[in-house]
Nucleic acid binder design. Structure first.
Lengths: 343, 343
DNA sequence: TTGTAGGCGTTATCAA
DNA sequence: TTGATAACGCCTACAA
């Protein structure tokens, strides 16, 4: 294990001072003669020199790192976001540092705290936020100590901590999904929600309620069931719903993944989608259009959220003012999992 | 934007020297009196001190970073691996630095090169490798310059660069998949392969051929079709196969994702799975058991690969010798997408 | 048990 | 246009 080749080696090899070598190798705009430049570049190439990001960060007070928290990188929704963030970072010479929080408030705090050691230039909070005042306060404090050091923070969902947001309006998303089945004549509309207390869950539940209210459909708590944001969660939730023996002709699922789980449960129970139950979901991940039947879904692009968040962080780093709340659009994609209510 | 709180501040606050503060804060085993320790810890807490990972890495010559290349973090297979790597890292105080290469050799080189700036303690090559001699040589060189500096490298697939591997035997995996349908009486067995020249693709294709040969089934190139490792790739490939008008009663897909794409294409063409065509895939991601019909698949856990790779890297960092080739097992999961050949 | 001081690789400030 | 040199924040001999 040899010592790494440093700028000192390059300077010596090119017979210039470290200062000169640095000016060239860090492509500063400091004037330097073409011959020296060529000599240094050549020396660096010959020695296969790669600047040390750590040493550089130490003096520049810029790390080139954008940290990203997600609930679970193995969840396709967050994987997409991560990919978008990664791409946007790469395009600007930044690196993404990704960590999963498992929707665990304590872990979220730990993760962000451990990010602090890396003095990231930016932090993107990818997942929804637990709406517990104590947690929000902890989070706020943790974020503040990053902000103070210059880290720009952006959240990809409604966020009670007050950080700038890039997001979709999840209330509107869920309302659109619910109104779609209402427009098809459905009145007994069940709903699979995510775990309560998360911004995303409460917003989507709220959208469901708003849609019902807007059409004078009485709210029936028996039609609402809660589950984890996984396909197993959707499966379980649908089973619970069926076990209740309540009557419903449409089902609004909070995410594609849960919808797919619910689809399996319905199929197992011999309930045809869409003949007996219309199923509508949200997100519209690629998988949603591949299952049978392809899912009607309110579609929005997680990719765009991630990419834009990076964009805003880079802008902020340049000193620009960034908007407090950027709300992206969505679109209903009608496929074969929903149909008009008959009989 | 204030200056970050450094160990100097903590030392001053606790009225000790920086050295003493460091000894406590870096939990070295250097003896230090309980009172001083308490005072320093308290000061650190009060000041909300978090050691600077960059400064620390600079002097320790350990960064606590394990880099990971994947073909695409948004591909569920790699997302699982990433998650496993992340978890294993976190458990030991390491951080994962993840980058997608898009199966582009040039990008792979660029990514690894850019990793070098971070002097990672470990590098995991998550995806299959292009078997082009020139690329392998470039890769080998890039890897060598990391190794020289102490980075431990592990690949998660057969790797012509000679780095230690943690992998499944993809030849055997594909053979098992193919032999399963053979055992069901199928003889006209089509195959959807990944892009050629990748270790994974060639291995799985080889396994398919071996199985045929072992059962005296003639190899028919018309039954082999190539596609991208995406569901769209599987869809296209299946369409191409159908367009050829060749007769087949079983289809071996190289991955679950491709199998799902193929399933859609078959369904669109009015071909029932498994009644008219038996479909078998490899990997067995969660989604494989959720589609209709649930897929028969050769199952192995990407999670295990990732977790073990981290384990080996940490061992190597401790000075242990690590095995050159660790081959993990697999298992055939028979579900409803395959059935005996009738008539 | 504690403190002093040198150095990790880089950039930036100042002089030349 | 170039070159010394002092930081950046931390750890670790070596001294006390």
């Amino acid at each position: 294990m040899t010592r790494q080749v440093s700028i000192v080696d390059v300077a010596r090899e090119a017979r210039v001072s470290v200062a000169t070598a640095s000016r060239i190798l860090s492509n500063s705009d400091y004037p330097v003669s073409p011959e020296t430049r060529a000599r240094v570049l050549e020396a660096a190439r010959r020695l296969d020199y790669v600047p040390d990001a750590f040493a550089r960060a130490l003096v520049r007070r810029r790390t080139g790192i954008i940290a990203l928290t997600v609930h679970d990188i193995a969840d396709p929704y967050f994987a997409e976001i991560a990919r978008a963030v990664e791409d946007a970072c790469q395009a600007d010479g930044y690196r993404a540092l990704i960590c999963s929080t498992d929707r665990d408030p304590d872990k979220e705090i730990r993760v962000i705290r451990s990010f602090r050691a890396f003095r990231p230039d930016g932090l993107i909070l990818g997942g929804g936020c637990v709406e517990d005042p104590a947690h929000v306060e902890n989070l706020r404090r943790e974020i503040a100590s990053l902000t103070v050091r210059g880290t720009r923070v952006v959240a990809l969902s409604r966020h009670p901590t007050g950080v700038p947001m890039v997001r979709v309006d999840n209330v509107a998303v869920a309302r659109a999904a619910t109104e779609h089945v209402i427009s098809l004549g459905h009145r007994r509309i069940a709903c699979i929600c995510g775990q309560p207390n998360f911004t995303t869950s409460t917003d989507r539940f709220e959208g469901y309620r708003q849609a019902l209210a807007a059409h004078d459909i009485p709210f029936d708590p028996d039609l609402v069931v809660v589950g984890w944001y996984t396909w197993a969660g959707g499966y379980q939730a649908a089973r619970e719903l069926l076990a209740r023996g309540v009557d419903f002709s449409a089902l609004v699922a909070s995410t594609d993944i849960m919808a797919i789980g619910a689809l399996v449960a319905l199929r197992e129970a011999g309930i045809d989608v869409p003949d007996r139950v219309s199923l509508v979901s949200m997100n519209d991940l690629p998988i949603a259009s591949v299952v049978e039947p392809p899912l009607t879904a309110v579609s929005f692009r997680g990719r765009d959220l991630g990419a834009l968040a990076v964009r805003l962080i880079l802008d902020a780093l340049e000193g620009q003012e960034i908007p407090q709340d950027t709300v992206l659009g969505f679109e209903l994609k009608v496929r074969r999992s929903t149909r008009p209510l008959t009989d």
